[in-house]
């Protein structure tokens, strides 16, 4: 069905206001966007890894979710979602439930790329009928902007600070979407907030309504951790896509497909210069960093294009 933006915007909201996420937070934008892809007739159980989103959206006695919700720990969101789904299957089989439920998990990059990777890999391999959504803000924001394996090279994080001998994080960002794709799941995709949210919406809809374990990786900027003017959320996302730092693509039943090709691929500085975490890359003598980052993006982009041929 074609994406009808206005109609989608009229759907009842599934994430309520009153949560305690930062002003301008990308995580709640991601959650709203994904939950909007649910058909209103379907119910959902939302699972959440410990993180900013969790401590802010269910602070006793205030839950921001219109649906049932469970958080259990940091490193086990995928297994938790799988457990609910297993219960659903058996209770449905026994005739104890009639309604249709969908199972959606949210975790940050800490709970997904790092501490929860084993649990995620297990759940993807077992093929629970669920969607795991990573809201990737590229560091452990909940504990105070420590580096994660999703933090890009050169980023100034509190455990990879820029100092006299250091230029920020030395390692590259892990490519989690490819790792999940290697589980041969039916659907995996990368997206962010672009334009009228068509890309995110369609991917979320596919992920929710494709049977089996599906994965969505949503770049969700964090104004505090990235150090940009919080009003600039949309601009940051656009630049991430247009510089190809965060390419939008999907892997459906093993077929790679590019979802967005910038009309003009922008130089990486456009993305970097908006953010305080990369400020040191622009001081004199550090030009090599930008070159290095550009080279890496170009190489990754080319690899992706080859896969999507």
């Amino acid at each position: 069905m074609a994406y009808n933006f206005k109609q989608e915007m009229e759907k009842p909201e599934r994430l309520a206001g009153g949560h305690r996420l930062c002003a301008g937070c990308g995580a709640s934008v991601a959650v709203r966007g994904v939950l909007r892809a649910l058909e209103p007739s379907d119910r959902a159980v939302v699972t959440n890894a410990t993180g900013c989103l969790e401590v802010s959206t269910y602070l006793y006695p205030y839950t921001a979710y219109e649906d049932s919700y469970i958080h259990s720990a940091f490193e086990n969101a995928a297994a938790t979602c799988g457990g609910v789904e297993a219960a659903y299957r058996v209770l449905k089989k026994k005739g104890k439930i009639e309604e249709n439920f969908k199972f959606i998990t949210f975790g940050g990059d800490g709970g997904t790329y790092d501490i929860g990777l084993q649990s995620l890999s297990g759940a993807m391999e077992r093929g629970h009928d669920m969607v795991y959504v990573c809201y990737d803000n590229e560091a452990y924001m909940n504990t105070g902007i420590q580096r994660s394996s999703a933090t890009p090279r050169f980023a100034d994080a509190t455990t990879t600070p820029v100092g006299r001998e250091s230029y920020g994080k030395t390692q590259r960002k892990k490519n989690l979407t490819e790792i999940i794709a290697a589980h041969n799941v039916p659907y995996a995709a990368q997206t962010t907030f672009l334009g009228n949210f068509k890309d995110l919406h369609e991917k979320a809809h596919k992920a929710i309504y494709t049977e089996g374990a599906c994965f969505l990786n949503v770049l969700a900027p964090c104004p505090r951790g990235w150090r940009y003017d919080m009003a600039e959320l949309a601009e940051l996302c656009r630049l991430a896509a247009d510089t190809c730092v965060w390419p939008l693509y999907e892997i459906e039943e093993g077929t790679w497909k590019l979802s967005y090709e910038p009309k003009k691929k922008l130089p990486i500085e456009e993305f970097l210069k908006k953010q305080g975490r990369f400020k040191h890359m622009f001081t004199k003598g550090n030009e090599w960093m930008i070159e290095d980052a550009q080279q890496y993006v170009d190489q990754q982009w080319q690899r992706l294009l080859d896969k999507c041929k």
């Binding site: 309520a16 206001g17 009153g18 949560h19 305690r20 959206t57 269910y58 602070l59 006793y60 006695p61 205030y62 839950t63 921001a64 979710y65 219109e66 649906d67």
Partner: peptide, 13 residues
Amino acid sequence: EIYEPATSKLVNT
């Protein structure tokens, strides 16, 4: 536990 949906609406942020 909380047995109602979206109780965060009560919070004035």
